[in-house]
Amino acid sequence: MIRSVRRYARIYGRLVAASVRSQWQYRASFALYSASQLVATLAEFGAIWALFARFGSLPGWRLPEVAVLYGISNVAFALAEAGARGFDVFPGMVRTGDFDRLLLRPLPTAFQLAAHEVQIMRVGRLVQGSAILAWGCMGLGIEWDATRVSLVGLCVVGGACIFAGLFVLQATLAFWTIESLEVVNIVTYGGNQMAQYPLTIYRPWFRLFFTVAVPLAAINTVPMAALLSRPELSGLPAPLTWLAPCVGGPFLAACLLVWKLGERRYASTGS
């Protein structure tokens, strides 16, 4: 068991390193792409800032609090995007038959796709998200201790798992159809956009969807209840609010199970 975990970790490291070395040969493109991502995300947060400047507040929320949510969601999304990129290109691999190549290697396909290509150009969103997160954390005016810091870390990791799970689900759909995958962008890119603001501002049906079906509430209002000591935000017992982001783990695992089903279907239809 331990040996195979170490082996997988080593292979993952080597494949990622290989992917980075490949991309490094296209440095100019990488720089421009990162810059464009930086511009886009800066404008996004600029809009939040501008709306706060115009309207004074978002009912019940201050700018630094929204900045923390924005930062958590964006950093998590950037990590998931970097790590699950292989799933993003997967529909194309099915079409060209390149997926067969992965099946011919003695490793799980999901693992190979995760290590397939780690896009360093996603660094723009990562840097910007981290900066906003740090800025927001400093502006919260709360006592920072080890538990609170690790809660923020947990939110980032949990969020990355949820977004990665969604990318896996989107790719899994490609076993059935490759024509209407864009719909899933509603929960991936849309989920990221949604989680940049507190969940409480949305309509009830929308809140319910992002609590139950896609548990992004677990990196949004629920942990904020613990972080800001505002239990009314979650309606859950306090200890649970501290652990809420852990939901990301089981969510990702469930998505990988669905992936397995899709893979079995592929083996019987070949398309």
Binding site: F55, L58, S180, I186, G190, Y197, I201, Y202
Partner: peptide, 30 residues
């Protein structure tokens, strides 16, 4: 056309999302 239908659903969802965010700011009055 199938891709167009998918795109349509996505645009509608985004529209709701953007609108809900702006509505929330308007609730602050002013």
């Amino acid at each position: 056309r199938a891709a167009a239908a998918a795109g349509l659903a996505t645009q509608v969802a985004w529209g709701f999302l953007r609108l809900m965010i702006l509505e929330a700011f308007y609730r602050a009055g002013g």
